[in-house]
Nucleic acid binder design. Structure first.
Lengths: 110, 110
DNA sequence: CAGGATCCTGTAGGATACTG
DNA sequence: CAGTATCCTACAGGATCCTG
């Protein structure tokens, strides 16, 4: 139980580290929702700037959270896809969305 | 589906806002795990400083995430408790711990 | 034990304009 | 459309020491 708890804090902190910042989760969510073009993702996330999106996407590509493909001859030249690794955040995101909705209900006065 | 997705991003962003930073989640977790004294909480969270813990605790008390009670005559003079509101983060935390554990398994090479 | 006071710094993130 | 390039700043967070 002692040991166990230490392990859990560490796991929690690891996750927080990977998901750090305001944007990674919304981006993951957006891509998993089927948005796969830059502007599309951008428009789907209120408040994000092209600069932040650009940076995060690169970062996430490096960490194999997403896959970027550029094909000069394709109709859609650049596209982003989520990897399986990325999808492993699904449950976390779902819980957070759930929480956010309930929370808003409370604030808005039910 | 359009409408719906907008609502979900917003919910997600709300949650991220509330839980922002490195420490809130670990603190909530610690308190929910039964730690209720300042130093106890502090020791249970690797890397946190007294300054950050102090700040976050105040903040979380203001936002009714935790309850602080000080009683000069009690054996334990100050103690922190989690509110029901606080406990509503349980599922998120569980999922994050789960993810963190799996992740470490992967990194450590299974 | 439960914090407060100070000092300091990096960097996450914003604003805006520009390019092929 | 898919980004880059600059410039800028607040503030999260660290380090350290102090107090009742």
């Amino acid at each position: 139980m002692e040991r166990n708890q230490q392990e859990e804090v560490r796991a929690l902190q690891d996750t927080i580290y990977v998901l750090g910042g305001k944007w990674k989760l919304p981006i993951i969510n957006s891509i998993c929702n089927g948005n796969n073009r830059f502007r599309e993702i951008e428009r789907s996330i209120p408040g994000i700037t092209t600069r932040m999106l650009s940076r995060e996407l690169k970062d996430m590509e490096m960490n194999h959270l997403i896959k970027r493909t550029a094909d000069k001859d394709a109709a859609v030249q650049v596209l982003y896809e989520s990897t399986d690794y990325c999808k492993s955040f699904g449950p976390i995101i779902m819980e957070m969305i759930k929480w956010g909705k309930e929370h808003r209900k409370m604030i808005t006065g039910k």
